[in-house]
Amino acid sequence: MDFSIIRIARTVLHVTNLQASREFYVNGLGMIETESDENHVYLRGLEEHSHHSLLLKKANAAHVEVLSYKVQKEQDLDELEKLFLSQGLKTKWLPKGQQHAVGRALRVHDNSGIPLEFYAEMEIVDRMLQRYDLYKGAKIQRIDHVNCAVPDVQKAYDFYTQQLGFSCSEYTETENGDLWAAWLFRKPTVHDHAFMSGPGPKLHHFAYSLSDRLSILDCCDVLASMGYAQSIERGPGRHGLSNAFFLYLRDPDGHRIELYTGDYLTTDPDLKPKKWDLNDPLRQTFWGHEAPDRWFNEASTFIDIETGEVIEYKQPVLAQRKPEIMV
């Protein structure tokens, strides 16, 4: 293919109370506030040198505007437009200067309806990795992945692996051999984008990487002391899938964020994806405890890249053909 997607790079969320969201993400989780105005807050992790990886936008309702990927070079954007247009999918250009701190960007809908953005340029800022005096809350380091519910995981898997150049690290099959979930990556970790079967398209969660497990425990203590105990939805625990230590939280608008540490490298080209059975309880939580019902039933809605209207979701239909998982 004539383009190179590097990694998941940012999430753009609509929130109803900007100050409440700032308090949660900055003082609770320990993210760095790069800058803000009356309608926007730009946040990043301590390790990140890009201007932001999370953009909070004040709005009347809480939705997800777009999931953004960084590409290798400007020309990649033009090649990506050709691909999406050839598939009959919606595209939209945002010229340089239209978005603060971001260069020219291409917005699209993938074949599941998820709004994606691709860009090559974002303003560079100081990395705070060794500013230990600023470490607080979860001491968030960098954006790691997003996880989306889609009605047809096989369809999403085929598009991302065959058209966008993603590889698969782990996957879940039903008893009938249908693909129920897939963990796909561009950077050399377990995933940048995961898909699981469910009413969609919806964003189940976005995730940030931490340096160690203790940071997750520290975060629980800080959140509880600040009155955010009810925001702790699931964990701490360890996934069977990915092997990562995790904690799921809900922000003041209900958007779900995962704090995540301890997965593994996927650099080697001969690494084979790990298969999980849908009925294996260890895949969700290695220690065996179950997730609450709302973890399965609640997710954030996306909006259309042109109209700004909420994207209608469809009920899941499992693929009828056996997936051929390729690295």
Rank of each mutant, 00 (worst) to 15 (best):
E79F: 02
G308F: 04
S68F: 02
D192S: 02
F118P: 06
S209V: 06
P252N: 01
L46R: 07
P236D: 09
S68A: 12
P188C: 02
H49W: 13
N60V: 01
M326R: 10
G45P: 15
L259A: 09
Q75R: 09
R283K: 14
P273R: 05
E35Y: 04
S53M: 07
D133T: 02
D280M: 00
G30P: 05
H14W: 14
G97F: 09
H191W: 13
K57P: 06
L210A: 12
D304N: 05
M226Y: 08
V222E: 03
D268A: 00
G308N: 15
I311R: 11
Q72I: 03
E79W: 01
T307C: 06
L80Y: 13
C148H: 07
G240K: 02
H205T: 15
H255K: 15
V125Y: 08
A244D: 14
H239Y: 05
W276E: 14
G88A: 03
F118S: 14
A182W: 10
L89T: 04
F84E: 04
Q284N: 03
P281C: 12
L54R: 12
R294N: 06
V146N: 13
E35D: 09
N17K: 07
H49C: 12
W183Q: 07
R142D: 10
V310A: 11
A59P: 13
R104W: 08
V146I: 01
D270S: 04
G28K: 00
A194N: 13
P323C: 00
F206V: 13
V26F: 00
M326N: 12
R238M: 02
I303Q: 07
A299W: 03
E233L: 07
F296P: 10
Q19N: 08
D158T: 10
V12C: 06
R22C: 06
T266E: 03
W93S: 09
V146T: 02
H109M: 15
K202N: 11
I32P: 04
Q87C: 03
H204Q: 15
E117Y: 01
H51T: 06
T11V: 03
R131I: 13
Y157H: 11
N111Y: 14
D37E: 14
P95N: 11
V64F: 04
G30W: 01
C148N: 10
E117C: 03
L134V: 03
T11W: 13
W183C: 02
R127T: 07
L106I: 05
D263V: 01
T307L: 11
F195N: 15
G28F: 00
E173Q: 00
A61S: 03
L129E: 14
I32C: 03
Q320C: 15
T285A: 11
E81R: 05
E312I: 07
A181L: 07
D158P: 09
V125Q: 04
Q99C: 06
K202C: 07
M1V: 02
D268Q: 01
L318S: 08
H255R: 13
A9M: 11
K275W: 04
S211C: 13
H100G: 05
I124N: 06
D144Y: 04
K90P: 15
P252H: 01
H109S: 12
Q284I: 08
L46T: 15
F246G: 14
N60F: 01
G103M: 04
V64S: 15
R127G: 07
K322T: 11
V222C: 10
R131W: 05
G308A: 09
K57E: 08
N297I: 10
I124K: 10
T261I: 09
F24W: 10
N176W: 14
H204L: 14
G237P: 01
G237L: 09
L241T: 04
